[in-house]
């Protein structure tokens, strides 16, 4: 016990008087709370698969089943597989889109419930509250990565030779989704403390998002229905993100068909990225506005 006395605080190290319970938000978490963030992510993962025989295998089973069902109906029954503008590989077309949309929905949903799920901590100990949406984001990624591994193996198996441009497109798409979903997650996590309607809204919208994005079908199919509104569809960040995934996995330089992805994909990608960054900054601002009342509302 004598050892502890060595750690007696030196007066000079204590610094200035400052208000407790203030943080610089996301930046603070990333810079100073990484270790805790890792531990929280680990905890979430362990809690999720506790008492489960298959454990983490579930992260593979669920998206695979989802994929097989969609592939059978859209690819085979509705004949998407036979189209020339799906890059000659509808399986990859669809699965790359599904990975992206699943990531989006999971980040958003997990982040939305994260503050309520950690109510005990939020009420009792001060931590930058962004820790919880951010850990939800990390957990979602740990489910996304196995899906990408499946996707990559399938691609490599079918003779995929990506160029730098393909790789950039994929990373670009994932970046847009990460930022966009985190931004929305922050906003909704804050609102959800006051109105649990947020949770239901996210569930509902997650369902809509799958169809409002060219995941299961080729974008050109919507053209005749939307008319000039197709531009709104293009500007929707998830469309760009999803199409960037398609570009990355399917648009080979030697491929004649240039219609796999939407026109001006890089330009829309940039717009989507900017939009996502704005949403994320807005999310951070709204979250900080609301967090002051978290402890007493929960």
């Amino acid at each position: 016990m004598a050892k502890t006395t060595n750690n007696t605080i030196a007066d000079s190290n204590l610094g200035e008087l400052k208000a407790p319970g203030r943080s610089k938000g996301l930046i603070d978490v990333v810079l100073h709370y990484r270790y805790l963030l890792n531990l929280i992510v680990k905890k979430e993962m362990k809690a999720r698969y506790r008492g489960s025989f298959l454990g983490r295998i579930w992260t593979y089973i669920k998206p695979l089943t989802q994929f097989l069902i969609y592939f059978f109906f859209f690819g085979v029954v509705f004949g998407m597989k036979a189209r020339s503008d799906v890059g000659g590989n509808f399986a990859v077309f669809q699965f790359s889109g599904l990975c992206a949309i699943n990531l989006f929905v999971e980040v958003w949903r997990n982040a939305t419930t994260s503050i309520r799920a950690n109510a005990a901590l939020v009420q009792k100990i001060y931590l930058p509250r962004e820790l919880f949406p951010l850990s939800a984001w990390r957990v979602a990624f740990s489910h996304f990565i196995p899906q990408v591994i499946i996707l990559l193996s399938a691609c490599l198996f079918t003779g995929w030779h990506p160029t730098i441009k393909n790789i950039i497109a994929i990373l670009f798409g994932i970046t847009i989704i990460s930022i966009f979903a985190l931004g929305l997650g922050l906003i909704f996590a804050g609102i959800n403390v006051f109105f649990q309607d947020a949770e239901n809204f996210v569930d509902l919208f997650g369902m809509v998002a799958t169809w409002a994005t060219p995941v299961l079908y080729h974008w050109s199919l919507l053209k005749q229905f939307l008319g000039p509104l197709i531009n709104v569809y293009f500007a929707w960040p998830l469309t760009a993100a999803c199409e960037l995934m398609h570009y990355g996995f399917l648009q080979y330089p030697y491929f004649d068909n240039q219609n796999i992805v939407i026109p001006h994909i890089w330009r829309y990608g940039l717009i989507a990225l900017l939009f996502s960054i704005i949403v994320c900054i807005l999310g951070q601002i709204i979250f900080r506005k609301l967090e002051g009342k978290f402890a007493q509302e929960l």
Binding site: V122, K124, A295
Partner: peptide, 18 residues
């Protein structure tokens, strides 16, 4: 004091880690 709740009026200042 621990920073879990926000103050309506006045201020709390602390030195070091609480």
């Amino acid at each position: 004091i621990s920073g879990v709740m926000n103050i309506d009026e006045g201020q709390i200042l602390a030195r070091g880690r609480i």
